[in-house]
Design a protein around this nucleic acid. Sequence first.
DNA 1: CTGCAAGTTCAAGTTCACTTGAGGTCAAGC
DNA 2: GCTTGACCTCAAGTGAACTTGAACTTGCAG
Lengths: 146, 146
Amino acid sequence: MKLLDIAEVASLTGTAASTLRFYEEKGLIASIGRKGARRIFEPSILQRLALISLGRTAGFSLEEIGRMFASSGAMDLDRDLLRAKADELDEKIGRLQAMRDGLRHAAECPAPRHSECPTFQRLLQRAMSGRLAPERQTPAARLRSL
Amino acid sequence: MKLLDIAEVASLTGTAASTLRFYEEKGLIASIGRKGARRIFEPSILQRLALISLGRTAGFSLEEIGRMFASSGAMDLDRDLLRAKADELDEKIGRLQAMRDGLRHAAECPAPRHSECPTFQRLLQRAMSGRLAPERQTPAARLRSL
DNA sequence: CTGCAAGTTCAAGTTCACTTGAGGTCAAGC
DNA sequence: GCTTGACCTCAAGTGAACTTGAACTTGCAG
């Protein structure tokens, strides 16, 4: 099992070395040791970084992602929380789909103004359903609710 | 056609008044005029703000969103760009779906470590296909996307 | 053995999207 | 007429997620 130095991890994952150091400082990743002053990583770091990247894409903060990794290093969370996050993603996916359809339609629609096109209106409606007045939540409150 | 003051727009859209002023400064919205020093808005501002919120959820920056509104005020863009954005969204949706499936699976899977579960592995693979690093997202965008 | 590219730390800087604060104006209700 | 509060401007502050810079050290090719 080949060990990796920071440059290898960086180029294999597309993550800047500075970001890796930053993530280590934040406790999201860990180097298995040092060779002199230089960090060395296990290959499993690649999966871990994939997971982090994925979580970021899904809209989780580094803080949240950090909590998803138990001390064991595995994803280890309350199943209810996992399900709740999945539901959250479902909603987001739905809105993104509507947005995508809206864009696609806008690219094809011959109407001079999309605001006058009923199809566009319907898509906009769907994309926004239930979130015209998004209950503003403080970061602190959001953290508490985890 | 009832005109709205900043407080009405704020409460109808859930957008803070300070944000509305900020958006105006950035050219994303415009007030139709002033009553004394106070901004007054056309009701169509509500749709515009819905569109902005939608775009933010879809991961576009304010800058990008600004460019999507031509001077006319309608969404008026190069159709190719619109299509490209739609494709971008498609990819993102795919990844989010995989992530959602991964979370859902993690909530059910009896395996002690998800890193040893082939189903989870497959989902992770799919979620990550063709991408190394996540795009940057602001905290505000994350809050909105809840 | 030496040169130097590539690593290290730590502090400070950057970007984005807002928010907050200080200080001021003004219309409306008492 | 006076107070109150919602609005105004402009500048500075905030938090997340990094990046950059300065100053220093080290592994390894030549």
